[in-house]
Design a protein around this nucleic acid. Sequence first.
DNA 1: GGGGTAAGCTAATCTTATTAGCCAAGTGGC
DNA 2: GCCACTTGGCTAATAAGATTAGCTTACCCC
Lengths: 191, 191
Amino acid sequence: MPAKAGLTPQRVVDAALAIVDESGAEALTLTRVAERTGVAPPSLYKHVAGLPELRRLVRLRVLAEFDEAIRTATLGRAGEAALRSLATAYRNYLRAHPHRYPFLEVAPDPDDPEELAMAERVVSVPFAVLRGHGLTGSAAVHATRCLRAAIYGFTRLEATGGFGLPEDIETTFEYLLDMVVHTVTGLRQQQ
Amino acid sequence: MPAKAGLTPQRVVDAALAIVDESGAEALTLTRVAERTGVAPPSLYKHVAGLPELRRLVRLRVLAEFDEAIRTATLGRAGEAALRSLATAYRNYLRAHPHRYPFLEVAPDPDDPEELAMAERVVSVPFAVLRGHGLTGSAAVHATRCLRAAIYGFTRLEATGGFGLPEDIETTFEYLLDMVVHTVTGLRQQQ
DNA sequence: GGGGTAAGCTAATCTTATTAGCCAAGTGGC
DNA sequence: GCCACTTGGCTAATAAGATTAGCTTACCCC
């Protein structure tokens, strides 16, 4: 009976991600993953070290996908266009995968070089966009932080239904983009 | 041996909050609360309906405390001063209680009137501040959203160690405040 | 001072993660 | 073509935690 599922760490993470997307991050259990992959729960340990490790792998996968998305969105653009495209891609990724938020938002484990590297890679995108916008040095750092804070907060509030009122969310997003663009432009002129 | 701990729902929530503050939201288990209150785990059910209900009560408590904090901070102030004071209080609350983030950030359960009312009460504070800043109607709604997004995102990134670089975080916070203030002021002039 | 309720308790069940130890199927060298 | 090893699966067992059932005692009211 045994030896036939043909699992790999990859496929385990695939299944985990599918469960997260369908049912939320809290629904990610080894038992559930085992069901979905047609295997008994202990068998999963042949491929991943346990639930915390599986969560870590999911996090890395999500970070990589997200990085790819925002990187692609800014490719070949510069200045304000890049900035707007980045913010929109950021928002779109989380609208497409609302349950992945917990994996994107957790602080990287300082003892995990792989995770740190991935997090750094992600942050390098807005940083590069702002450099292309004419900002350098400290101003670029502060502007990147403001940019991330604004987009991050917006998408988070949107994803959790934090915007209860009927006013159009697209319009708010435009306001937010204008806010960030003006700030960044203002900073550039100071330099 | 029985009948002596003298628990109440209040005291159970007190213990829960203490555990959260000490060890994080994931550490909140009934077993842990029972230990801390000197009682066997099933006894807690005489006071709260179960773990989800306990989490809900903790959430309500945190929201009420937070509301109190930002309400006090804006009391007797108006315009830009109120706005800055609000943002600072927001940030300070989460710096003082970093583990409470998960309770503040979860979307209110749409079927829970008490939670909805509390959430609405909290949002009414920035809304009132912006009304006092001269904004009305849709503009006030959009500005409130931008304000919340920016502060929320900033505090979140700060709390999770999202700001890795050495640049001063206070300075970034000043930039962020300026960003919001300028936007709000600009919106007022458009009206 | 007796009945009722409130607030404990122990015992038992269920879910989930995790470990231990077994087994079969393929693989490589000869 | 066959043996030893590795790989990937399994079942059984353990442990933590939530939750339910049913018992018991302290206290309150009258």
